[in-house]
Amino acid sequence: MNNACRTDSACTPTVATAQPAMSYEPAFDLIETESALVLRADVPGVKPEGVDLTIERGELRLLAKPAARHAGARALREEFGVGDYHLSFTLPRDVDAANVTAALSDGVLTVTLPKPAALQPRRIAVTG
């Protein structure tokens, strides 16, 4: 019994879409290739200057702010909310943080996190 819930509304989980100031975890894929980890995150409405990406002590943190839209218009229907995207997780592999690259295209952020050179497969030429 939770005594902090005094009214129905205080106990009902907020539907995220109704809150303009909410933040959202973007849908994302994390792919491992031979040479890198590749993150692809859906962040519709975000421009490159709205992205803040840090990698520190093996943790990736992403904050992406969508550009304002429809200022002053009257909402007729709101099925999804617009707010900041937050994502953070511990990287499952060592990465070469100095050589991480990120690109944003059509609302999809692609972050390429190379594995350290020592962990990358090398093909050894055999001389005869």
Binding site: H70, R74, L76, G107
Partner: peptide
């Protein structure tokens, strides 16, 4: 959304 001149319908279609 609605303003005086138009209705605006938006959908998130990343990628």
């Amino acid at each position: 959304w609605e303003d005086e001149q138009a209705l605006l319908v938006e959908m998130e279609l990343p990628g």
